[in-house]
Design a protein around this nucleic acid. Structure first.
Lengths: 137, 137
DNA sequence: AATAAGGCTTCCCATGATGGGAAGGTCAAG
DNA sequence: CTTGACCTTCCCATCATGGGAAGCCTTATT
């Protein structure tokens, strides 16, 4: 299997497959006589693992750890759960941050009539002296 | 006022002040005889505007637009609100994406006993053939 | 057999916003 | 006049991904 086929089979772009190899996430691929990378089913399986992990938002460093645990048939499941729980915490924090932005912005947008008149509470707030969330909730 | 004082007064790092100048977000600062950047109150005001906009998650390109509208005393408030609403949409989409990740991960983590035993639904899912959200909700 | 199309290789560059750090000039207090 | 704090510019790193060029390889069609 060439890299294009491995890409199609795994959903990981050829560009990224080479990158994952270059950063040691994937082992060095075998090569054909002419220098083409050659992949097998196990490689596609690993690429899918990486892709699913990325879809869940894991960073490549986390995936490196997860791949190690995946290969180690005797790992304690607690080790995996730890990584997952930390990531859940990160996601929770990020979500809260974005929600705070959204809330502030929605308050401002509600106060802005959004027509041809020039007065605009949004700009007043951005340019104003106070905090974004002025004595709100 | 030197860059350090402007930084303290605005909450924007000196590094970023220079960067904002280099990308045309801030006008070129005046210089002292010895080449130091010199700032006034209006500059600090603008820097604070940028900082608050960043805190609300606006990209620098959006801030460029917002600054233009800020300066234009006769802008229609609708123009500002448009930018804000688009950003709210972006935030909403991003939040939904992260929440989907979190939900999937939480389901998997709940199913994982997280002890010394090696069997782990999280790794089973990552390595498995199906979709992350298997026939779930 | 020659040729064209398309896949593969490596290498460099760009993103967005930020920080780190080096090498060297400047200012103010002692 | 020295010392330390501040300023300058320039380069590099992040994180994961894509774009594109130059050149080689393979396959299919004339």
């Amino acid at each position: 299997m060439n890299i294009g086929q491995a890409s199609d089979a795994s959903g990981v772009s050829a560009k990224m497959i080479r990158y994952y190899e270059s950063v040691g996430l994937m082992p060095e691929a075998g090569r054909s006589a002419s220098g083409y990378r050659v992949y097998g089913e196990a490689d596609v399986h690993m690429l899918r693992f990486i892709r699913r992990s990325r879809d869940l938002g894991f960073a490549l460093d986390d995936i490196r750890l997860l791949l190690g645990l995946w290969r180690d048939r005797s790992r304690p499941s607690a080790a995996v759960k730890d990584i997952a729980m930390k990531h859940i915490d990160d996601l929770t924090a990020k979500i809260a941050e974005l929600q705070a932005m959204k809330r502030s912005l929605q308050h401002l947008a509600e106060a802005c009539h959004g027509d041809a008149r020039p007065d605009c509470p949004i700009l007043d707030d951005l340019g104003g002296p106070g905090a974004t969330e002025k004595a709100c909730h």
